[in-house]
């Protein structure tokens, strides 16, 4: 504890959670300062949901998992983590934590942009792993997955979605505003597929049927599937 510096901790109520923001200092010091505060006012914190704004601090899964466990031992649940760091946001998502304040709509920011062409200025997100049931990827640009998207996994993208593997989960591309968005997959068997406002009528396919790469896009107000190679 000698090397720990005291970090200022600010707490305010938002919606039905407590939003924690920190002053200057590294993560371990910030964590220690917050836990001190929780211990001192346990009656206030107990049973509460915390949303912690860690700003630019980079947290690995082990750090965040430990933090969540330390809080849960004190009867406080970690509900979400706000951050400007891509690494930290990814960690929070993997641990199933929210990355925005409760009640705020993730797609609202997308609609503000109102572009009809694929957002070329947007960063694309590359995911190099299999998305398993319960995982959700939300991104305002394009999303590329190298791996499978399993049933129960969800992708919400402002631009295109490309899956270098089997797509069996649900996917929304060009969310709200971009009817030119496409969805590509090596094996197209989504449980749910949507481009902009149009929901695809996904034919029920036989298990294990190999159809090969396909691309979904909107044609005459309907989502159609086309084979990559005839």
């Amino acid at each position: 504890m000698d090397t720990m510096q005291q970090v200022s901790v600010e707490i305010k109520g938002v919606q039905n959670a407590l939003l924690v923001t920190f002053g200057e200092g590294d993560w371990l010091s910030a964590e220690a300062s917050l836990l001190q505060r929780v211990d001192a006012q346990n009656a206030f914190f107990k049973g509460g949901r915390l949303v912690v704004d860690v700003a630019q601090r980079k947290l690995k899964a082990a750090d965040m998992g430990k933090f969540r466990d330390l809080l849960s031992e004190r009867g406080v649940s970690l509900w979400g983590v706000l951050t400007t760091s891509v690494t930290t946001r990814e960690t929070a998502r993997r641990l199933g934590l929210a990355t925005q304040l409760p009640g705020s709509k993730p797609v609202r920011r997308l609609s503000e942009r109102r572009s009809t062409t694929p957002q070329e200025q947007e960063e694309a997100l590359l995911i190099r792993k299999t998305l398993r049931s319960g995982m959700k990827i939300e991104h305002s640009g394009h999303v590329t997955v190298i791996g499978d998207v399993n049933p129960g996994a969800e992708i919400v993208a402002g631009g295109d979605v490309v899956v270098w593997g089997r797509l069996r989960g649900s996917v929304s591309a060009g969310v709200e505003t971009n009817p030119n968005a496409i969805v590509c997959a090596m094996e197209m068997e989504p449980t749910h597929l949507r481009i902009a406002d149009t929901i695809a009528n996904v034919p029920a396919r036989r298990r294990g049927e190999k159809r090969g790469p396909e691309m979904a896009s909107i044609y005459k107000n309907e989502v159609i599937f086309r084979f990559w190679k005839k």
Partner: peptide, 15 residues
């Protein structure tokens, strides 16, 4: 199998 898939994801997330 669906639940196992979810669990495997959580196990991966916890490293």
């Amino acid at each position: 199998v669906r639940d196992a898939d979810r669990i495997i994801g959580l196990v991966e997330a916890e490293e």
